[in-house]
Amino acid sequence: MNLVTPEFGLLFWQILIFGIVLFLLSKFAWKPIVTALEERENTIADALGAAEKAKEEMKNLQASNEKLLQEARLERDKILKEAQVTASGLISEAKDKASAEANRLVDNARVAIQSEKAAALAEVKNTAASLALEIAEKVIRKNLSSDGAQKTLVDEFIKESKLN
């Protein structure tokens, strides 16, 4: 059977040509192709990994942002509260001061009034004393005349002093 007997010539050419094709393709085609495919695969895997990592980082960042915001909010509330306390403290202090000042002024005024009053009384007393002295002097001068005259004189002076 011709069909199942290998022809020596074709076998020779097959070995030669297939050998050459195998050598050339291995060296100049398969090597760059396989290397490139591998490189691309690695690049894609790396890129995917990087994207995953970035996503993770983003998540972390968001969480920390949230935390910061929460903290800031708390801080703000605290500051507001403190400010309120301070403000009310200031107000009450000012109130106290004002009332103290007012009391002091009132006291001062009272003291002044008292001293004025005392001074006025003293003057009145002085005036009364000098008046009395004057009266007494006049009385003494008039004493040289009659008793009656003295008496009218005294009355007159009293009358006068009352008018004053």
């Binding site: 040509i17 297939f18 050459i20 094709v21 050339l24 393709l25 100049f28 085609a29 398969w30 760059p32 192709i33 290397t35 490139a36 495919l37 490189e39 691309r40 690049t43």
Partner: peptide, 21 residues
């Protein structure tokens, strides 16, 4: 077929060499 194989895969390999990505 040998010429065809060499032509096709050399052409392809050239593209991979130029830019693998």
């Amino acid at each position: 077929s040998a010429a065809l194989l060499l032509y096709i895969f050399f052409t392809i390999a050239k593209r991979y060499k130029k830019n693998a990505l």
